[in-house]
């Protein structure tokens, strides 16, 4: 098991370098000279510009820039963004918000997706199953920003149950509505995955054995069917944590949540290379670590899987 984790850890390294390099490459071939943009309409002061270029290593060749960046990343010296704030400070400010948002969304989709999926799966072919299936397809088919607008309008403005826009300091309670919108599509996927998985396992030999041993229906369902059905669901949830954090751009935009997505979008529009790459690097790390965690959870969930 330890060896397995170490091996997976080593496999993560090229993915991390690849992804950061890809983003760095794309970002630093962005159009426009960011230093020039800083001066706006005023004439560029060459001395200041040169100093700024040196500070951000923009005068070095591309590959050198990338390695200097990596060196700084390893030493947690992330430098300043173009308005002079340390990137690390920006990250500390925006990441907690998005992590809260993603965790709430993950809890929402996991709890409701698994409950609905299990009930639908156990009652395959009944009315409840059919209704839930159709509803989940409709949720997948509607773009997230339409869902966001409608929820914001109905729940936030018409009913007044939640703040339509979050703004300033985003607490847990304010983030519930955006989190539901963010998690809705994944909720539909979790539901369908759980349902399929339950139906598949209901007819497995070990379930028949458990029933034949005289175990109660409840125990068969919870201990034998549910535990084994959770394997694909856990995979999905693990991969989804990263996707939720990176995919929060639209939701954060609609509900005005001051998180990673909003900041990232602004940084791309401004061409703030260092900020973009720092944010994306952290996102990629979250994604890779979540996947590693999933692989470890596998072994615990499925006794057939043992890593040498």
């Amino acid at each position: 098991m330890t060896w397995y984790i170490i091996r997976r850890f080593l496999q993560m390294i090229p993915v991390f370098f690849g992804a950061t390099f890809l983003v760095y490459f794309l970002v630093f071939s962005l159009p426009g000279d960011p230093i020039q943009a800083l001066f706006g309409d005023r004439p560029v002061n060459e001395a200041v510009a040169a100093q700024l270029r040196e500070q951000y290593n923009l005068d070095e060749p591309f590959l050198v820039q990338y390695f200097l960046y990596l060196k700084n990343l390893v030493t947690f010296n992330l430098g300043n963004d173009f308005s002079g704030r340390p990137v690390a400070e920006v990250l500390v400010q925006i990441f907690p918000v998005t992590i809260r948002l993603a965790i709430l969304a993950l809890i929402f989709e996991a709890v409701f997706g698994i409950i609905f999926g299990v009930v639908a799966g156990l009652r395959k072919g009944k009315l409840f199953d059919g209704t839930v299936l159709v509803a989940s397809l409709i949720v997948i088919a509607i773009p997230i920003f339409v869902l966001g607008f409608v929820m914001q309008f109905v729940v936030g403005v018409k009913l007044g149950w939640a703040k339509p826009t979050v703004g300033g300091d985003a607490g847990w309670l304010d983030l519930i509505l955006p989190a539901i919108v963010l998690g809705l599509v994944s909720f539909a996927y979790v539901l369908r995955l759980t349902r399929t998985s339950i139906i598949e396992n209901m007819h497995a030999d070990y379930v028949r054995t458990a029933t034949a041993k005289g175990l109660s229906r409840q125990r068969v369902v919870v201990v034998h069917i549910l535990r084994n059905s959770m394997i694909p669901v856990v995979t999905f949830l693990g991969a989804d944590l990263g996707a939720l954090m990176g995919g929060a751009i639209v939701t954060e935009g609609i509900f005005n949540v001051p998180g990673v997505g909003q900041r990232l979008y602004q940084s791309v529009l401004r061409g703030e290379g260092p900020t973009i790459v720092s944010i994306v690097s952290v996102l990629v790390m979250v994604y890779i670590l979540a996947n590693l965690l999933v692989d470890v959870l596998y072994a615990w969930l499925d006794p057939r899987i043992r890593y040498a």
């Binding site: 993915v15 690849g18 992804a19 890809l22 983003v23 990263g242 996707a243 990176g246 995919g247 751009i249 639209v250 990232l264 994306v280 996102l283 990629v284 994604y287 890779i288």
Partner: peptide, 9 residues
């Protein structure tokens, strides 16, 4: 590498 970047991002 491509998987680690969310589609919209």
């Amino acid at each position: 590498v491509f998987f680690a970047l969310p589609l919209i991002l």
